[in-house]
Design a protein around this nucleic acid. Structure first.
Lengths: 211, 211
DNA sequence: GTCTATACTTCGATAGAC
DNA sequence: GTCTATCGAAGTATAGAC
């Protein structure tokens, strides 16, 4: 039953050409959005013929998934390494507040809205990602002396993720009102927390901010 | 110089047919993403002929903009009314935590990534929206007894917006780990704040949460 | 194993008939 | 004021030549 989905020959995974196509697709997705990732445009961006895209990828979805996996895998391994070594809240924040990552998220979520294959892939990774980050976040919180029922780790993590997401998203469309102030606030807050490993330090900001 | 962008006849703005097309486009965008909003699909969804889309809208971008404006305008007027009447933090949160709105945001931001006309439109509204919300948020914060240099209004607003965004976005792809806990946390936090208008109440959660 | 010639579908848009 | 006939460009995908 799972044996008739068009049995045509597909290029090897370790082809140089294939890699160029994925690179081009990634660039396009970042700069012009997923709708610009068509076989013709990808090929043009890579200096190749459009048919090659279909030789290396059975369907366009497969190319999308490949771009996503490469990106997600690189990202997640960074976190998994970090969680093993132990990270501060500041480091976690810096890893999350990456505009490039925000653009990818937006594009793939939008893509997932009408491509089932992408949605499944995205959900799988999101859960894995959440798990890795949650562990790291929980210990970083504990190290900063913040109690679990003062701020449950998942909640803090979602707050951080959300803030990073919104900043990236707005920057993407050219809206930056309040961004500088917010970043400064977070930096101050985290600097104070990471430096003070005493229990029950609360969420108050330490000192006044110059700048 | 601005007089030759194709001078062909366009249908009146108050046409019944036109409204049907916008409705259909909105539905499609929400359910299948902006890439599904093509002249043919929109027409099919409205039970009309594809060419009608081009009769009522000079270019597809104009249709996108129309869908966006209608949505944004409805949303913003809600806030502007709320700010006039005065709102609590709880009400603001409820207005933001709308999954439907999150989907729209995602779609239009992604769309803006490769459609300049949309990007400009989106940025314009985002700024207007921010302004309206910031006023409301600032007074709600003050009413809750939270000092400005404890939590600057813009920062709080971005935190709230980000959290709402992330929850909506994740729900969209079927990831809900930690959502229930987070919503409960926010509800408790806000209930406590809105009820206690004393100065310097800090950010600590009031009491322990059962449930 | 790699790439090309080619088919078929869908898209946006316009000119002109009612 | 409203809708139809029609086009050229762009999209995905396959079969077969090197």
């Amino acid at each position: 039953m799972a044996t008739t989905p068009s049995a045509r020959r597909i290029g090897t995974k370790d082809s140089q050409t294939r890699a160029q196509l994925v690179d081009a697709a990634e660039r396009l997705m970042l700069e012009e959005g997923y709708a610009a990732v068509t076989s013709r445009k990808v090929a043009a961006a890579a200096g190749l013929k459009p048919q090659l895209v279909h030789y290396y990828f059975r369907a366009m979805d497969d190319l999308y998934v490949e771009v996503f996996r490469r990106q997600a895998e690189a990202n997640i391994s960074g976190f998994e390494q970090a969680v093993a070594e132990g990270v501060t809240l500041q480091q976690l924040w810096r890893m999350n507040a990456d505009a490039r990552a925000a653009v990818f998220t937006i594009e793939f979520v939008a893509l997932a809205n009408h491509r089932k294959a992408i949605k499944a892939e995205l959900a799988r990774f999101a859960e894995r990602f959440r798990a890795a980050q949650q562990t790291a976040f929980a210990s970083a919180l504990a190290a900063a002396g913040i109690d679990e029922d003062q701020l449950p780790p998942v909640v803090g993590l979602l707050l951080m993720t959300g803030l990073a997401q919104v900043l990236g998203l707005e920057q993407m469309i050219g809206v930056t009102t309040g961004h500088a102030e917010t970043k400064a606030f977070v930096d101050d807050l985290l600097a104070g927390l990471d430096v003070r490993p005493a229990k029950r330090s609360g969420l108050r900001r330490p000192g006044s901010r110059r700048r």
